[in-house]
Amino acid sequence: MMPKNRPKTASDEKAPIPVLHVAHSPHLCQTARTTQRMMIDVVIAVTPLLVVSFFVFRWYAVKQIAVCLAGCLAAEVIFTKMRRRSLSLSDWSATVTGIILALSLPGPAPWYVGVIASFVSIGIGKIIFGGIGMNIFNPAMVGRAFVMIAFAGNLAASGYVDPMSPIDAMTQATPMDAFKQTGATATLSALFWGLTNGSLGETSAVACIIGGFYLCLRRTASWEIPVGVILSAGVMAGIANLADLQSHWTVLHHLLGGSLLFGAFFIATDPVSSPLAPKGKFIFGVGVGFFIMLLRFYSGYPEGVMFAVLLMNALTPLINHWTIPRTFGEK
């Protein structure tokens, strides 16, 4: 406080004063969960998957992840520049797309497959719709679907196998394919821990569960989606088991095998391409689980997560339309 009766001096005039501004309410906002932080959460959550993939697939995994990360970041830079927008790498969304894409690819796929998938993911999967938040389909799955058709050989079941590889897991067929072709069943423990062949991130059920729980606890992923996927896939697998009691591929094999858990926790939970309201999210999850099982049973592919997610992405606007929450007090 200034002493009273003191003559005013020039320095008083220049004394700093608080600068006030106005804004609309609310005047508080949480800063713990920004879009950027949600993306970083996904990166944290995939760490167990990365660890397992480095352990099982060694430099195949390192190479694939490096290629896709570089590809996605480069694509983001190039396409954002083309749109004359300010660069948005700091939102980490391109990083997430790169990692998820790499983890969904087979280890032996050549480098150009990863690069092309990355550019399609970012360019056609996201930027073409108007950038982050505007895309209809999961960008990583768009890129993967493209290379799956363009490089059918590299991404078919045989593309996963490299007989000359020094890595044990890669000399064998993926568990899903082995079962489809010969009826051979993998042990549940192998599927649980992830010491099998498959896409880089999908092999270990335990890694997917740990990462997935983290995402759901942080509410970065909505739990309704994985619960829906696992419930509906489990029920369908159960019915299939009842119809064919001889089968050694049980409900647990279906849930732990292939990329069901990876898809349920990391791919289907992409907020942009899934519904808004909790009920819609659950329906979306149930739909994904249903189509996964339908494709596993009846399609030529051993696995169906990618197409199931893309199909349900397309239905998301419809689900949103059906599941507008009933306003408080509405009849």
């Binding site: 906002c29 800063t31 920004t34 879009t35 907020p271 942009v272 808004l276 999210k281 009933r326 408080f328």
Partner: peptide, 25 residues
């Protein structure tokens, strides 16, 4: 207290739906 990040695009996460006491969107 009022520090606020720049507005970015809606990523349709649905958190606003989860917290709305009137159950609006």
């Amino acid at each position: 207290d009022v520090r606020k990040a720049k507005e970015t695009s809606c990523i349709r996460c649905g958190r606003c739906v989860d917290v709305c006491p009137m159950n609006l969107v």
